[in-house]
């Protein structure tokens, strides 16, 4: 009994620690989203949030449905496997309102260099140039056709 009296302050420490643990669990419970981990290490609601995002890309088949000439030209060249929207950007808005939403033409100076600027880390077989030396400021599409990039 005397030991318990003399060690009373330790009981208080234990209570403070226990209160800390409870507070930890309360805050944790508040910040960890409901049902976290039901399908894996993520919030199940995240799926709904992602699904609710507006669709930005129209898709290759939609572009080809109208732009037949460019599609044929592209399919015949080295850019056959580059999707339309990889260069022209997401075009779902254009498809939804063809009359009013017109896609802007890409800026070839930055667009082509994004893939074809010389970089030692790229495979040797991949066509790449030091653009400043190669064209001297002349736009790429002066010589190359973007849909079928032969000269």
């Amino acid at each position: 009994m005397r030991l318990l009296r003399e060690a009373g302050h330790l009981v208080r420490v234990a209570l403070v620690l226990a209160a800390g643990v409870v507070l930890f669990l309360i805050i944790r419970n508040a910040v960890v989203p409901k049902d976290f981990g039901r399908y894996g290490h993520f919030r199940p609601e995240a799926l709904g949030v992602i699904r609710a995002h507006p669709v930005a890309f129209a898709g290759q088949s939609t572009c080809v449905a109208c732009h037949d000439d460019q599609a044929k030209e592209r399919a015949a060249g080295k850019h056959a496997h580059v999707a339309c929207e990889a260069c022209h950007g997401p075009q779902a808005a254009h498809v939804a309102d063809i009359a009013n939403v017109k896609p802007a033409l890409p800026d070839v100076a930055t667009l082509c260099a994004r893939c074809h600027e010389k970089n030692a880390a790229k495979p040797k077989s991949f066509p790449q140039v030091v653009t400043a030396e190669h064209s001297g400021g002349v736009a790429c599409n002066t010589c190359h056709k973007p849909h079928n990039p032969q000269i």
């Binding site: 005397r2 030991l3 009296r5 003399e6 060690a7 009373g8 302050h9 330790l10 208080r12 420490v13 403070v16």
Partner: peptide, 19 residues
């Protein structure tokens, strides 16, 4: 900071020391 306990008797300090 005392957590409400002002007991610093030699016996309690001995317990503190051990813990």
């Amino acid at each position: 900071l005392t957590l409400g306990s002002q007991n610093v008797s030699p016996a309690s300090r001995r317990i503190d020391d051990k813990v």
